[in-house]
Computed example of a mutant assay.
Amino acid sequence: MRSIILDTDIGSDVDDAMALAQLMGSPELELVEVHTVYGDTRLRAQLARRYAALAGRDVDVVPGVVEPISGREVWWAGHEGTLHADLDAETISADSAPERLVARLRARPGGLDVAAIGPLTNLAAAFALEPQAAGWIRHLWVMGGGFGAAEDAEHNFRSDDVAAQAVLNAGVPTTITGLEITRQVTIEAARLERIRAAGPLGAALGADIEQWWAFWNETWNVPHDPVALLALSRPELFTFSETGRVTIAIGGEAAGHSTFTPDPTGSVRIVTGVDGEQVAEEITSRIVTAGTAYPARHEGIDDDRA
C-alpha cells in the first residue's frame, strides 16, 4: 500500500476526472487527499469532491493556487462542472493546498507519493514556503512535457514554466510521463460504454467524457493523466530511462518546452515505452472497479445519469 496525494486541474480535459476515478479503483493505493490547481480551484475542488462522493468515498479536497507563477493567462474551456448540479453543496477544505501539502509531508516525511497531473504551481509554492518539503516526498509522479523529437510544449509545463523548472530541479525523485507516451493510449466507444455502465460514478464520468469528445469534435480521447498514474501501479507495462535532469524553457514562444539529459546524479527519469493496449484496458478496469465497488452515498446526484 502506497499513500498518495493527487494534485490536479480537474474539470477541463476529462482525463483528470478519469485519473481520480482510476486512483479510487486502485486497491494498492491509499488516496490521502486531493489538491486542485490552476484557475477556479474552488470549482475544481467541488468537482473532485463530487466524484469522490459518487464512488462512495469521503475524500478531503483542498483548493490551491489560482494564478500560475509564470503569469500566463489561465486557459478555461468553459464547460467545467456544467454537467454536475449543485456543486456548491460539496464541502471542501478552507485550507490552501501548498500549506496543506507542507503539513502532510512534515507529518509523514518519506511516506507520501505525490501525483501532479496539472501545472506544478502548488508544489512550487509549497517548496517556497518550506524548502525541506521537497526532501520529504517519497516519489513525484508527473504528467507533463514531451520528449519526442518533434514535441511542442505540453500544456501543464507551458501553463507554468517557472513552477515546472523549480519543481523538477528540487531534487525530488520523479517520474515524468510525456506526450510521446500518453498519445499511444486511447479511450474509444467500447471502453466508454463499459465506464458508463459502472454505477453513478461511471454514468457521470461517461457524460463528461462525451462532453470532452464533443468539445474537440472527436469520438475518442487520450487519457494522459491516467497513463501517468498507472506507471506507479503497473510499472511492468512501461519502460523507463535512467536518471537524469529535465530543463524547462522559460518564457517566449518555446515556454514550457522540456529537455531530458541523462545524468547519474540527477533525480528525474522519464517513461520511454508503454504497452498501449494493456494500459488502456487497465485504466478502464480500474475506473469500472471504482464505480461498482462502493455504493454512492451522495443523494441526489445519480438521478438522470444512466
Rank of each mutant, 00 (worst) to 15 (best):
G110Y: 06
S96D: 13
F157P: 08
L168V: 00
D86E: 15
V102R: 06
A85F: 07
Q132S: 15
E180W: 07
A133P: 00
F127S: 05
G111W: 03
A94K: 14
R196H: 14
A107M: 08
E130W: 09
E188I: 04
E130K: 06
L168S: 00
A198E: 07
A166V: 10
R108K: 11
H139S: 13
A107E: 13
A164M: 04
V185K: 07
D88I: 11
V172D: 09
R100C: 05
A190N: 12
E188R: 12
R100H: 11
A153W: 12
R106Q: 07
L168M: 00
R183A: 13
G118R: 04
Q184K: 14
E90I: 02
E80D: 13
G135K: 00
P131C: 02
I187R: 08
T186C: 12
T91C: 07
L83H: 10
H84Q: 15
V167G: 02
E80Q: 14
R104N: 15
A125E: 13
E188W: 02
D113R: 00
T174I: 10
R196N: 09
E180C: 07
E130M: 03
T186Q: 12
E193G: 13
P119V: 08
L112Q: 03
H155F: 14
G199S: 00
A149D: 14
I176L: 14
L105G: 01
R100V: 10
L87A: 01
N156H: 13
L179W: 10
T174L: 09
G110A: 09
A107F: 09
W136F: 05
A126R: 02
Q184H: 13
N122A: 06
L83T: 15
A189R: 13
L87H: 04
I176V: 15
L168W: 00
T177N: 09
A149P: 13
S159W: 13
R108D: 14
F127P: 10
N122D: 12
R100W: 07
E90T: 11
A170D: 02
A133Y: 01
L192A: 03
A149W: 08
P173N: 05
L83F: 07
A94P: 11
A94M: 10
L201R: 05
E99Y: 01
E90D: 11
G144M: 11
A189L: 10
H155G: 11
T186R: 13
A97R: 11
G145I: 05
L120M: 15
A126Q: 07
L168I: 00
D88R: 12
R100I: 03
A107S: 15
R183G: 14
E188P: 02
P131N: 00
L112A: 02
L123G: 02
D160T: 11
L168F: 00
A153N: 03
L123I: 05
G199D: 10
P109H: 03
T175A: 07
I176A: 05
I92W: 14
G135S: 05
W141G: 04
W136I: 01
G171I: 11
P109C: 04
I92Y: 09
A128W: 01
L129D: 04
H155Y: 14
T91G: 08
E180Y: 02
A103E: 15
Q165S: 15
V114H: 08
A107P: 01
V114T: 06
F127N: 01
L101K: 00
A190L: 12
A198P: 12
V167R: 03
G78Q: 10
T182Y: 09
L83M: 12
F127C: 03
